[in-house]
């Protein structure tokens, strides 16, 4: 009898009405830090809550609500990366030609106009770093979608390159070429817009 009563009083181990207040900001930060796009991050948070609603009756409270919801969001982010990877093939071509000009085609030396120049900033000055970080965010938006996904998976989730290659169907050689080109592009973009 007692058990039955408890079951009726709390049929669910998680109350969806409280989710937005408790977890929306956290989940949004999680998504935004990986995607760097407000709209996509918001959509994924919404998708996460809606997917969670479908599964809530099966949530047994073995992990915390937060861990459970974050797990759902992680899958959404991974799906997003995979979709980006599958449509990213064409954008690589354009950025590839642009990037070839960084170096002399014969000996691989930097071309004069692309010489890395010191930013000339104190790397411990938080204000300057913040400004540079803002520029970096703009530069990240210009990356081919696939490159951004690879870069973010590596750095935000610290995934092994083998795992990233498997998720995005890349070869090991592709992976390193993408990491290299991404960094060359970001660095050049920062240099162009700094000062």
């Amino acid at each position: 009898m007692e058990q039955e009563k408890t079951a009726i009083n709390s049929p669910l181990k998680s109350d969806p009405v409280t989710w937005v207040e408790k977890y929306a900001d956290y989940l949004y930060r999680f998504a935004f830090s990986r995607l760097r796009d407000e709209e996509i991050a918001r959509d994924l948070v919404q998708d996460t809550f809606l997917a969670a609603l479908q599964q809530v009756s099966r949530f047994e409270g073995k992990s915390s609500e937060k861990t459970w919801l974050t797990g759902i969001l992680k899958n959404k982010v991974a799906d997003f990366y995979r979709r980006q990877a599958s449509k990213g093939i064409t954008t690589i071509r354009t950025a590839e030609t642009e990037q070839q000009n960084f170096f002399d085609a014969d000996n691989g030396h930097w071309n004069t106009q692309h010489y890395p120049k010191a930013f000339g900033l104190d790397e411990n000055n938080p204000l300057l770093l913040k400004e540079l970080g803002g520029i970096l965010n703009t530069c990240l938006k210009k990356l081919p979608a696939l490159w951004f996904s690879v870069f973010s998976m590596k750095h935000m989730d610290d995934l092994a390159s083998e795992k990233i290659c498997m998720e995005l169907k890349l070869t090991d050689a592709n992976f390193w070429v993408i990491m290299h080109r991404t960094k060359l592009n970001l660095r050049a973009c920062l240099q162009k817009h700094w000062n």
Partner: peptide, 13 residues
């Protein structure tokens, strides 16, 4: 600068 970029990216506030 390559190291700095990683620091800026992961240290995003």
């Amino acid at each position: 600068q390559s190291m700095l970029i990683i620091r800026l990216f992961t240290g995003f506030p």
